[in-house]
Structures are given as C-alpha cells and as structure tokens.
C-alpha cells in the first residue's frame, strides 16, 4: 500500500504561476480523475510532479509514502514509482520500443547487475498479448511515425512493463477515436488493482465511461474547486464548465 500526497502545490512556468495550491492524496488501488477546462493547470500539475525542469515548484510538497520527491531528478522520481503517460510523447529516432524498455528496466537494476534478456522478452511478449499488441510493434522506433492511437498504446505498454506505483495519465484520450480509446481503457483497467494508484487527467467525461474513477475532482485556476464521485463527471458533462467557473467566481468573491 503506497500513497502519493500532493500538498498545497504551487507551480510556475517562468514568472507565471499556473498551479496555485493543489492538494490531493492518492492511495494505491484508487483511480482519481481530474477534470477541468483547458489552461487550468492539469498538464502542468502532472509534469511538475514528474520533475520536468521547466516547471518550477515554488511552494508545497509531493510525498511518496511519506517521503518528499521534490529534491529528486526526473529519472529518480520515475524509479521511485512515478509514471507519466504523456499527452504528446516524444519520438526517439533509431531506438526500438523493445530496446528502450530494456534500457529503462536496466536502469532500475543495481550497478553491475544485468537484465535477463530472455526473461525480459518473455514478459514483454506476455504483456503485449494481454494488451492485444502485435509482436512487430516493439521493433519499431519509439513513437516514430506513430498514429495517435499507436502512441497511446506505446505509453500503455511502457506503463505495463515498468509497473509504477502511481500513473499520471495526461489527457490520454486526446486525439483518439472510439476504438483506440477503448483499447487504451482496457489496458488501464487491466492494470488497475491494489498496487497501482492512477491520476487520470481529462477534459472530457467520455473517457470516464470506460475507466470508471473512484473519485472525480474539478480543477479550475490551478486548484481543486470541487470533488465528488463519478456522478460529478456526469453533472459536469450536463452543465458544462461554465457552471464551475461561475461557482468559483462566487466563492472567490465571498
């Protein structure tokens, strides 16, 4: 049982503050959805937690199992169990998915320890079968020339192989058609369980039809303004984000 605690987090890009006091605790086994209009700080939040150098945390804490991760480099945070599924994953020319994952797993071993290649491929192929991914897929260069759906599938496969404690999924549904969406959701649902906590960032409620969250939070102007269960997502869908904006404005005015 692990916990990811985000306490009063403030994040700036350059001089501009984007996340303004975000607080949330995610325990393993839970799926939290963060919804909110564009430009409200959802992606910034996930990148800051993952340790992107352009995102400056000016205040607050991020703890994994009670220990701060803010002093850690991005790769150390990753090895501590944080996985970020990117909205726009990078292409890595000339590096196959199989080799990339192998390097990522190798990086988790102690110095001098060698990854068992045959056990690795066995596990890789097993995961691919479960995610219904063609075997040829992993010999392609990471994200190079991939369709939107392939990119997301590649993220899901990496997540399955790296077995993080917490997955931050940044707009995983963006740019996906309904079939691709279903495949991605199936992948996440298959990994759901007592060892994984998920922060699902999405603009649309559509994804939540496939990945049903335990908690839904509405983010606006850099912080959570409303929390509830999955019905909140439906309410939001019906009333639109203007409803939140208005409510927030009234709350701030008081």
């Amino acid at each position: 049982m692990s916990s990811l605690e985000i306490k009063n987090l403030h994040v700036s890009i350059g001089e501009k503050e984007i996340v303004k006091g975000f607080t949330l605790t995610i325990n393993s086994g839970e799926v939290h959805a963060i919804m909110g209009p564009n430009g409200t700080g959802k992606s910034t939040l996930s990148k800051a937690i993952a340790g992107h150098p352009d995102y400056k945390i000016t205040q607050g804490e991020v703890l994994v199992d009670g220990k701060s991760i803010l002093e850690l480099e991005a790769d150390e945070r990753a090895r501590a169990g944080i996985f970020l599924a990117f909205q726009y994953p990078s292409e890595i020319t000339g590096v196959s998915i199989a080799n990339f994952l192998r390097a990522a797993l190798q990086a988790r071993l102690a110095e001098g320890e060698e990854l068992d290649a045959s056990a690795y491929y066995k596990r890789l192929y097993d995961k691919m079968d479960r995610l219904k991914i063609d075997r040829k897929f992993t010999s392609r260069a990471v994200n190079e020339g991939f369709s939107g759906g392939e990119k997301k599938r590649c993220e899901i496969l990496q997540m399955a192989m790296l077995e993080p404690k917490f997955a931050l999924m940044d707009e995983t549904d963006s740019g996906l058609d309904i079939d691709a969406l279903r495949i991605v959701a199936e992948g996440v649902n298959a990994m759901r369980g007592p060892n994984l906590g998920v922060l699902l960032i999405t603009h649309y409620q559509r994804l939540l039809d496939y990945i049903v969250p335990d908690h839904v939070h509405v983010m606006y102007d850099g912080q959570i303004v409303k929390s509830g269960d999955k019905s909140l997502a439906l309410e939001l869908e019906a009333k639109g984000y203007d409803w939140v904006k208005k409510e927030f404005a009234t709350a701030s005015a008081r």
């Binding site: 150098p53 991005a74 990522a104 990496q158």
Partner: peptide, 21 residues
C-alpha cells in the same frame, strides 16, 4: 525528459539518443 521519465539518467538518455541517431 521523456526518457528520464522512464527511469534513464540524463547521461543514459543522451547515449540512447545518440545511438539511435
């Protein structure tokens, strides 16, 4: 950053990028 987010150190990420190139 993408590669580091998967657990590779900055140096390992650079090497992999160059080897890929």
């Amino acid at each position: 950053f993408y590669m580091q987010q998967r657990g590779l150190t900055e140096g390992q990420a650079m090497s992999l990028a160059v080897n890929g190139f």
